[in-house]
C-alpha cells in the first residue's frame, strides 16, 4: 500500500495501481476514451489527464498509465485539468463530430464552442474513416489482447497514421469476431445535429431524453470497412448496428487496399 493525496484527501492505494484505478475506486470521475478494463492501458486519448505535484513542478499526466508513488499529490479536477479537458474535447468534436459519445462528453464537460473548421467531408457527408477515427487503439488492443488474433494494427505515423489491416486485406488471423466493433468508443449511434456552422451539438444539454432514437446509423473506422466483409449469421446477432455499418461502409470504403 502507498499513501497519496487525491484532491486533498489522504488515501491509500495498492502498489502498482494506476492513478485512474485509484481515482475511480474513490469515485472521482475521470473521462476516458481509450481505456477499457481488461485491456492494457495505452494513454492515447489524453482525456484522463490529471495534475500531479505542486507548485512550478506540477504537471499533467495521463492517469491511466501513471503508477501511484508514495506521497504523491494528485488533483483530478483542478482548473488546469478542466481547461485541458475542455480544449481536448473541443478538438475531439472537431475530429469526430458525428460521435454521440464525444458530443455527450463535450456537453458534460462544458464545451461551449468549437473553433475548428470541419475537415473535408464533414459534416453531414459520410465520415472519412481515416480522418474521423480518434485512434484510441481499443480495437487493435482487443484484437491482440483478448482475441489473440492481432489481425488489425496501426499503420504509418503522424498525420498519416491510421488503423489498418496489413496490406489492406483481411488477414488469416481475422476470425471476423467483431470485437473491434464492440470496443470502438465512438462508432455507436451517430449524432447528426452538428452542422457546418457549429460542429458542436450540445443538444444533450437542451433536450431530454438525449438525441432521440431517430439517429440509428453507426460508423466504422476501419478502412476498408471491416463489417462489410462480415458474414450473415454474425450480422443477425449484432443486428441493426451492423446493418447500418454495412450500408455506410459500402458508401465510403474504398475497395482497394493502399498497396494495390
Amino acid at each position: 500500500m502507498v499513501h497519496i493525496t487525491m484532491n486533498g484527501l489522504a488515501v491509500e492505494a495498492e502498489c502498482g495501481s494506476s492513478l485512474l484505478e485509484v481515482a475511480r475506486f474513490y469515485n472521482f470521475p475521470i473521462p476516458t476514451l481509450c481505456h477499457e478494463d481488461g485491456l492494457n492501458s495505452y494513454g492515447a486519448c489524453r482525456l484522463c489527464l490529471v495534475e500531479i505535484g505542486e507548485g512550478p513542478k506540477s504537471k499533467l499526466v495521463a492517469a491511466c498509465g501513471y503508477r501511484v508513488e508514495e506521497g504523491m499529490k494528485v488533483r483530478t479536477n483542478s482548473m488546469r485539468v478542466q481547461r485541458a479537458r475542455r480544449l481536448l474535447l473541443e478538438l475531439y468534436v472537431a475530429t469526430c463530430p458525428q460521435s454521440k459519445r464525444i458530443q455527450d462528453l463535450a456537453s458534460e464537460y462544458g464545451v461551449r464552442q468549437c473553433r475548428y473548421q470541419p475537415v473535408d467531408g464533414q459534416p453531414g457527408a459520410p465520415w472519412d474513416p481515416k480522418a474521423n477515427c480518434i485512434q484510441c487503439g481499443l480495437c487493435v488492443r482487443i484484437c491482440a489482447e483478448q482475441m489473440m488474433a492481432g489481425a488489425i494494427g496501426f499503420s504509418g505515423r503522424g498525420k498519416s497514421r491510421h488503423v489498418a489491416r496489413p496490406f489492406g486485406m483481411t488477414s488469416e488471423q481475422c476470425r471476423q469476431c467483431g470485437a473491434c466493433l464492440y470496443a470502438c468508443p465512438v462508432c455507436e449511434l451517430r449524432c447528426q445535429a452538428s452542422t457546418a456552422e457549429s460542429l458542436l451539438c450540445n443538444g444533450c444539454l437542451n433536450f431530454s431524453p438525449v438525441c432521440f432514437q431517430s439517429y440509428s446509423d453507426a460508423m466504422c473506422f476501419l478502412e476498408p470497412c471491416h463489417t462489410c466483409e462480415l458474414s450473415g449469421p454474425f450480422r443477425h446477432e449484432v443486428g441493426i448496428k451492423v446493418h447500418a455499418l454495412h450500408d455506410a461502409g459500402q458508401k465510403v470504403a474504398p475497395s482497394t487496399g493502399e498497396l494495390k
Binding site: 491482440a144 492481432g150 494494427g153 499503420s155 504509418g156 488471423q173
Partner: peptide, 11 residues
Amino acid sequence: PVTDVYQVATF
C-alpha cells in the same frame, strides 16, 4: 504478427 511487421514497415 504480420500486423507488427506491417506497422514497423510503414512507421
